[in-house]
Design a protein around this nucleic acid. Structure first.
Lengths: 119, 119
DNA sequence: TAAACATATGAACAATTGCTCATATGTTCA
DNA sequence: TGAACATATGAGCAATTGTTCATATGTTTA
């Protein structure tokens, strides 16, 4: 038995291969954290609804608030989070700020999620 | 001005089109909730790490606990969540329970997320 | 059947999160 | 410049979440 083998489940298995594969393909700690942070952003139905509106058009904050029947403040807080994760971008036009999707990945990720829950 | 037009941003815009589009393509309330719940599952680095291990092989709970240097209880709680959302499946073999990916969407979703944060 | 092992789960606690409320910042126009 | 409008943001609170600890359930074997 190799010295690095690990006892597990009462048997002695060669975990070296698995651990080597895992170590080789597991992203760095900070990447894993960023990835989880990104999916956390998708993990709120208000933000998902905002993204669905942005699938259709570039809209200003008060349009979003009206379309989703929520306060301007609540929407603005969520847009901040969406913008920080670079899922949406903004453009000021006079007093209004227009938001739109920043990235094609947004649609793919939501589409895949939707496929998953519907199968 | 049509009676359904809405005042917003001090101008009177025709929001009918936008609202119609949004209503036509926005999933039902419960689908939105399910979608957010699904992405919440991806929104934790422990669960992401578990999925990365399962990318390589079917493994038992204590292997996962060792590979990720966490307690069996913590891993088991997380596996429960992953299983409830049908991202992993399990198979008992004697005293051990082996977990594996349940779905091809898992890889796609994580790959898209990774592309997003790395661009 | 009893002991040992592998896994699952309920309770509890600290940490995080989404909203509200109040207010600040930024822009336009009289 | 000051008033009105659009958006952003900090503080606070209730609700949710990930882990730990203790213990329950399920399986094998002596």
């Amino acid at each position: 038995m190799a010295i690095n083998d690990v006892e597990c489940c009462e048997t002695f298995q060669t975990h070296e291969e698995l651990l080597a594969l895992v170590n080789a393909n597991m992203p760095q700690e900070d990447k894993l954290y960023d990835l989880a942070e990104l999916f956390k952003v998708f993990g709120d139905s208000t933000r998902i609804r905002i993204l669905y509106v942005l699938f259709e058009a570039e809209v200003c904050v008060c349009d979003l608030a009206q379309a989703l029947n929520m306060t301007q403040s609540a929407i603005s807080h969520q847009l901040r989070i969406l913008k920080q994760s670079r899922l949406v971008k903004s453009r000021r036009e006079g007093k209004s700020v227009f938001y739109s999707l920043a990235d094609a990945h947004v649609r793919t990720i939501i589409a895949q999620g939707r496929e998953h829950i519907e199968e």
